[in-house]
């Protein structure tokens, strides 16, 4: 899907670690208000793509156009300032800090205290479980609660684009449902999301558009529901 006026337009992106190239010649676009999903096997490079987009690793080649400005090779804090929030793989919450302080870190760039308070209210309305745990050390939360905190923390930035990396990984089924309900709610509110998921079925159901990544390249792309119906997708990613 190449679309003029997409919020995020990635062209020819190459990423890697040391001497190994993980992602090569990646083209991808995320229109405003859409949920775009990236699926693929373990090691296909999905997490690397998100790390490249948020600046945690440097792009070797290519452009990352966000609102028509190239963010490739900008440091991560500058990319955050531009309006991209990344809830990374493994949650990466600040375990030694309280839930409340984690949310405060999410709003690090917030322009005012009133705005931060408004966002905090929104985050706690979305995840009421967190409200009961505000003074607790985040490291003591359960896995599902930590994932909610990671998403809530990213939303505290009030981002124009939200990058979610494997939000359902390692969670109990009950929490998986809750996380996907939260993502569906974000979609209904018109948030723009780039979602990386191993739970391909749930992700494709939600996605307006999806890319299948195979060894660092896009092998198939199309609207989420369309991909769900394709036999080759079902065989490889939906458990047959």
């Amino acid at each position: 899907m190449s679309m003029n006026g997409a919020l995020l337009e990635v062209r020819g992106l190459e990423l890697g670690y040391g001497r190994s190239t993980v992602v090569e010649g990646l083209d991808l676009s995320v229109p405003e208000g859409a949920i775009v999903c990236l699926i693929g096997a373990n090691g296909a490079g999905k997490t690397t793509v998100l790390r490249g987009l948020s600046g945690l690793i440097r792009a070797r080649r290519g452009a990352v156009l966000f609102e028509r400005t190239d963010l490739a090779n900008k440091p991560a804090h500058r990319i955050a300032r531009a309006g991209i929030a990344h809830a990374p793989e493994g949650r990466q919450i600040f375990g030694e800090m309280t839930v409340s302080e984690n949310l405060a870190m999410g709003a690090y760039l917030s322009p005012s205290k009133a705005e931060t308070a408004r966002r905090r209210e929104g985050a706690l309305a979305r995840f009421p479980r967190l409200a009961e745990r505000m003074r607790q050390r985040a490291g003591l939360l359960s896995g599902g609660e930590q994932q909610m905190l990671a998403i809530a923390r990213a939303l505290m930035a009030d981002p124009k684009l939200l990058l979610l990396d494997e939000p359902s990984m390692g969670l109990a089924p009950l929490f998986v449902d809750e996380i996907f309900r939260a993502i569906a709610a974000l979609k209904a509110e018109g948030r723009t999301i780039l979602l990386v998921e191993q739970n391909a079925h749930a992700a494709l159901e939600l996605a307006d558009y999806a890319y299948v990544l195979e060894t660092g390249k896009v092998s198939i792309e199309g609207p989420g529901r369309e991909l769900l119906a394709r036999p080759e997708i079902a065989d490889a990613y939906l458990g047959g």
Binding site: S54, G55, L56, P75, A76, H77, A80, R81, A85, H86, P88, Q92, I93, F94, G95, E96, M97, M105, G106, Y108, L109, R153, A157
Partner: peptide
Amino acid sequence: ENSDASELMG
């Protein structure tokens, strides 16, 4: 605690 996560917060 986490330098990468701090950068992501801006």
